[in-house]
Each structure stands twice: as structure tokens, then as C-alpha cells.
Deep mutational scan, measured.
Amino acid sequence: MTYKLILNGKTLKGETTTEAVDAATAEKIFKQYANDNGVDGEWTYDDATKTFTVTE
């Protein structure tokens, strides 16, 4: 399945997608991606749209 991440960081904003077997796997990938890019904030997930959002 395709999952989407919306980044609302102070210095980085944008979107990315990943292919993952489930939401938990996608979350791990996205949290590593956000960490690698210096984004740390409040996480939400919308199962209907398979979208994670992180807001600093």
C-alpha cells in the first residue's frame, strides 16, 4: 500500500510517499525520514487517506 507523509516543519515543508505492508511499517519509515531531516513534532494519522502528518 502507498502511504503519504505531510511535513509541516519549521524549516522543512512538503510531502513524500512510501510503499509499506502496513501503517506501522510506514510510520517507522516516515519517523526516520523526519528525524533525518530535523523535523520533530506532533504526529497524526488518517486511516481513511493513509496519510501521516507531522507538525512542529
Score class of each variant (00 low, 15 high):
residue 1 M to T: 15
residue 1 M to F: 14
residue 1 M to N: 12
residue 2 T to R: 09
residue 3 Y to V: 01
residue 3 Y to Q: 00
residue 3 Y to R: 00
residue 4 K to S: 06
residue 4 K to V: 14
residue 4 K to Q: 07
residue 5 L to N: 00
residue 5 L to S: 00
residue 5 L to F: 08
residue 6 I to M: 06
residue 6 I to N: 05
residue 7 L to D: 01
residue 8 N to Y: 10
residue 8 N to Q: 10
residue 9 G to R: 04
residue 9 G to Q: 05
residue 9 G to F: 13
residue 12 L to M: 15
residue 12 L to P: 03
residue 13 K to V: 12
residue 13 K to Q: 12
residue 14 G to N: 09
residue 14 G to Q: 15
residue 14 G to A: 15
residue 14 G to F: 15
residue 14 G to T: 15
residue 15 E to T: 07
residue 16 T to M: 12
residue 16 T to R: 13
residue 16 T to Q: 11
residue 16 T to V: 14
residue 17 T to N: 06
residue 17 T to S: 14
residue 17 T to D: 08
residue 17 T to M: 11
residue 18 T to I: 12
residue 18 T to A: 13
residue 18 T to V: 12
residue 19 E to A: 12
residue 20 A to V: 06
residue 20 A to D: 03
residue 21 V to Y: 12
residue 21 V to P: 15
residue 21 V to T: 14
residue 21 V to D: 09
residue 21 V to A: 13
residue 22 D to N: 11
residue 24 A to H: 07
residue 24 A to V: 09
residue 24 A to F: 11
residue 27 E to M: 13
residue 28 K to E: 14
residue 28 K to P: 03
residue 28 K to W: 13
residue 29 I to Q: 06
residue 29 I to H: 12
residue 30 F to Q: 00
residue 31 K to S: 05
residue 31 K to P: 00
residue 31 K to Y: 08
residue 32 Q to E: 10
residue 32 Q to R: 07
residue 33 Y to E: 02
residue 34 A to Y: 03
residue 34 A to T: 09
residue 34 A to Q: 02
residue 35 N to E: 09
residue 36 D to T: 12
residue 36 D to Y: 11
residue 36 D to K: 09
residue 36 D to V: 13
residue 36 D to L: 14
residue 37 N to E: 14
residue 37 N to P: 01
residue 38 G to H: 13
residue 38 G to K: 10
residue 38 G to M: 12
residue 41 G to E: 01
residue 41 G to D: 02
residue 41 G to I: 02
residue 42 E to G: 08
residue 42 E to S: 10
residue 43 W to S: 01
residue 43 W to T: 01
residue 43 W to K: 00
residue 44 T to K: 11
residue 45 Y to Q: 01
residue 45 Y to D: 00
residue 46 D to A: 04
residue 47 D to E: 11
residue 47 D to P: 15
residue 48 A to V: 09
residue 48 A to P: 11
residue 48 A to Y: 13
residue 49 T to R: 07
residue 49 T to N: 08
residue 50 K to Q: 07
residue 50 K to R: 14
residue 50 K to I: 03
residue 51 T to I: 09
residue 53 T to Y: 08
residue 54 V to A: 03
residue 54 V to R: 01
residue 54 V to D: 01
residue 55 T to P: 01
residue 55 T to A: 09
residue 56 E to F: 06
